[in-house]
Amino acid sequence: MNLPNKLTFMRLVMAVPFIYFLQESNVGGFKYRLVAFILFVIASLTDFFDGYLARKYNLVTDFGKIMDPLADKILVISALVIFVDLDYIPSWMSIIVIAREFLISGIRMLAAAKGDVIPAGKLGKYKTTSQMIVIMVMMLLGKNPYNFYMMLVPVVLTLWSGIEYTTKSKHYFINSR
């Protein structure tokens, strides 16, 4: 396993304590949110570095193409589900993000069945970056009236990238058996 793949795997492992501290922040307060924030920042940095190293040193693998976006999804979806539970954002925002992720994962599975691997596109990367930034800000600020407005940016990018991805991949739907 090369270094970029190890960083991706590390991000998956970090999801467990991240989920714990964010969920328990309603009891543990700011200090728990801060621990969750630090874990999320470290995980986000591994996302940047695994992609950078894989491209720079030609270490791109099918494992990385599939597991890197999956690790991102686990972190982001975990945070959004907990934010709904903590009443930071309305559930429909989380549902839009989760539904898009399932749709894209389904398209990736159709592609894989045909021997294709579809890497994340630029718009999807912008969506992920906006989600990660908004999640970090929410962890620092806690429950406040601005969370809804901040979350609108990643929700719009989620819808836009989902439409773009689906449109570009429609041949997998048409020609699937």
Rank of each mutant, 00 (worst) to 15 (best):
P154N: 06
T61R: 00
L3E: 06
Y149R: 03
E24S: 12
D85Y: 15
P119N: 03
A120P: 00
A71Q: 11
L34S: 09
G29V: 00
M150D: 08
Y57E: 07
G64W: 00
N144S: 10
P154C: 04
P145H: 03
I104V: 11
Y57F: 13
V41T: 10
L80W: 13
K127T: 10
I96G: 05
K31N: 07
L12K: 12
I66H: 12
S94M: 15
K65Q: 05
M132V: 11
P154A: 02
F21G: 02
A15R: 08
L75Q: 09
L141A: 11
N147L: 09
L80Y: 13
A43E: 08
V81L: 15
I95A: 14
D72V: 04
F49G: 07
I133Y: 01
A99N: 10
D68C: 01
I96A: 03
E101G: 07
P145E: 06
G28R: 10
L157P: 01
N147A: 15
L7Q: 08
A79E: 01
L103P: 11
F30G: 04
S176A: 13
A79P: 01
M109D: 09
K122R: 15
S91V: 13
Y165Q: 02
L12F: 15
A36P: 10
G142Y: 05
T166Y: 04
D116E: 13
L152V: 15
D116Q: 08
K143G: 11
D47T: 07
V97I: 15
E24C: 06
F83S: 10
Q131A: 11
I133K: 00
Y52N: 12
I133E: 04
Y165K: 00
I174N: 08
A113D: 15
R55Q: 04
I19W: 09
K125A: 04
E24K: 13
L152P: 01
T167A: 14
R177E: 12
E164P: 03
P4Y: 08
I174E: 12
